[in-house]
Amino acid sequence: MIKGRFDDENLKWIPVLIIVVFLFPFLLKSATFSYKYYLYILNIAGIYIILTVGLDILSGFTGLMSLGHAAFLAIGAYTSAILVDQVGLPFELSLIITPIIVGLFGFVIGFPALRIEGMYLGLTTMGFGFIVKRLIIAFREWTGGSGGLHVSKATFFGITINNDWDNYFMIYTFAILAIIIARRIVKSKLGRAFMAIRDSEQAAQASGINLAKYKMMSFFISGMFAGFAGVLFAHTSHFISTDHFDILLSILFIVMVLVGGVGSIYGAVLGTLFIVLMENMFIPLFEDGMSQFVHLEAGDFQVFIFGLIMLIFIIFQPLGLYGMWLKTRIYWKIFPFNPRKRFT
């Protein structure tokens, strides 16, 4: 998307950021008494970050739309729950096997993507979401049907991950790993092929990129990220049911990527943090204020705000938060000599 003149990468601050991420819970603990609640919210954000980074590789970099990523998350969560609790595999093994299984599901959905594009693909993945949700209910011997399923706690090489405090460190270790891996993928030959497909399929094909292979690959990778998020989701929330993996969640993932900025990994991270924090911390405040005047059902106002945010971002700021950041950065770098009408 934006490739400014100053897009040279500065990697020095990344170790600092990682240290800050791991020191943050200690800071939070000393600051407030209700730190456990904030950690819980941050954990959700961390799991979603893993997923949206994968979704960004698919939608932002390859230009393939998916309205069914909640289904991938669901498959990951249920597969891991079944593998660990009913088959008896160790958690560490499930962490490797489940993403591959979900990636294969992505492969299957990627197959129609070879022939169709744009909104047809959006509809196919949306239909896939509905079908998965119904099939999970149908296989009720394993999945517990619509009643939901209890999942055991994660044990990582003998250490049991008990509460939100432990979850935080596990989730954010994997989230940072996911971000680094996604950055490497995007900067590699694979990522360049994805971007070529996004920008022009014909040109990509003409320069020797195997469209079928790379599209399937993109779905596979995206599915793997989603499956990974699903495993963590199942074993940190301890209870999963099909109600959670709604079509609205799929749309929310797209909103996260879109608000953050399509086609940048950091954008996906920013957007996810923004939306999850909005959802859990700021909107409830508004809702309390609003409920004095109108009677509100839980969730309606929230969904309304998300719709509004998405519409405003699409119309006024299609590059998202990350694009805004890049623009301001370039603006300040050349500050006194800004040409007019440069940033339109």
């Binding site: 230009g63 744009g118 749309i251 969730g299 929230q302 719709g307 509004l308 998405m310 519409l311 299609p318």
Partner: peptide, 17 residues
């Protein structure tokens, strides 16, 4: 197309809520 689809989806969820 992607942004237009997302715009109409956001319109849909705005109208519904």
């Amino acid at each position: 197309v992607f942004s237009i689809i997302m715009a109409t989806i956001s319109l849909a969820i705005i109208l519904r809520s």
